[in-house]
Amino acid sequence: MSAVPPEPTPSQAPPTLATPTREPEPTSTKPSDFPKVKLRLELRDLSHESTDLFLKNFNSAKDFADLVDVVLKRLYTFPNHDDPTTSLPTPSTTKIPGTRSVTLILRDMDGVAYTTGSDIDNDHKEVHLSLSYLNHVASARAGYTARDEILGVVCHELVHCFQWNAKNTCNGGLIEGIADWVRLNAGFVPPHWKKEAGKSWDTGYQNTGYFLDWIEKSRGTGSVYVINQALCHQKYHEDTFWKDLFGQSVDDLWTEYTESLKKPKDSLDDSSLKMQVRIKKEVEGHS
């Protein structure tokens, strides 16, 4: 499991930006409205075969910055108030952790990746990525390449550099679920991911990520934004946290989600209708 550093110092961000959209690649080309972050790359073993694999599949001059922008947009943009898929109140302010730098370190280690604060201070983050793991995923699979996996893993870990954690009290499954929700909505979906109900809502990773995606669609676009902002302002108490935000306990939300998975795939629920309205509006706006 990826380690989440202690609570960082916040900075201000614009309260309302355009609604984020799914994109299969990091594609930001405009100057970001978010605070600039120093990005560094550290290669600890140039002779390792996975180092060459990484460099061939990751443009460190562009992909790194684009992924940071992807993460910040999905965590810290709130949809326009007239968006028909949004039922949540417009927030007055948005606070972003005061992360000043992120160093991506490639080294030979067990596991996949983890994130931690650096020795300088906690506003300087380190993302450690396993060369051994990259060697394991080197072979391309139909519709999914080593580049897809590298972008997906780095995207997940970057979320840990910029998300809130309720003053170190947040449920670990929610922390990991938010990271995989961002990865899911950025389009970096591994072939083994499945939208299914696990043992509990806080199993973490894609299991919780898909649950959060359902909340986003059923309770209003910007729901994950609201969850993350709540984790900035207060400690996490499960018996009140979810009810304060959505008027239901997380167990009730989870039950509703698991029931939704039993519906025929071709049936249209309320979230599907909302999505159709938004797509229709976007199409009409470009016609």
Rank of each mutant, 00 (worst) to 15 (best):
F162Q: 00
E126W: 03
W193L: 08
E149L: 00
F78W: 07
M275E: 11
Q276L: 11
K243Y: 10
S28C: 15
K280L: 10
K281I: 12
P89Y: 11
A146Q: 06
L268W: 08
F241D: 01
D239Y: 15
A113P: 05
R147P: 02
S218R: 14
T258I: 06
V283W: 12
P20F: 02
N57G: 08
V112T: 06
V127P: 03
M1D: 15
T19C: 12
I178A: 02
E259D: 10
D202G: 02
C161I: 04
P15V: 04
P35Q: 12
D123P: 04
T77R: 10
A13F: 06
P31E: 14
N168A: 15
Y236D: 00
R100W: 07
G172Q: 15
K217S: 07
E126I: 07
K56G: 06
P14L: 09
H237E: 11
L261N: 00
D239Q: 15
S92C: 11
D83L: 10
K199S: 13
G143Y: 13
S118A: 10
I178H: 03
D252H: 10
S50D: 03
T77M: 07
L39Y: 04
C170E: 01
S132M: 04
Y133L: 04
T77V: 05
T145E: 02
A138W: 02
T9H: 09
F246Y: 02
V4P: 05
T27V: 15
K274Q: 07
G285E: 13
N165V: 09
K95R: 11
T255K: 15
S47M: 07
L104M: 13
P191K: 09
G222M: 03
K56W: 02
L212A: 05
K56N: 06
L158P: 03
D83E: 10
F78N: 04
W214D: 03
P91Y: 05
T221S: 15
Y210D: 00
S272D: 12
V37D: 05
E256I: 01
I215N: 04
Q206N: 14
R183M: 08
K199L: 13
L268Y: 06
M109F: 03
R74G: 03
E238H: 13
L72W: 09
A186K: 01
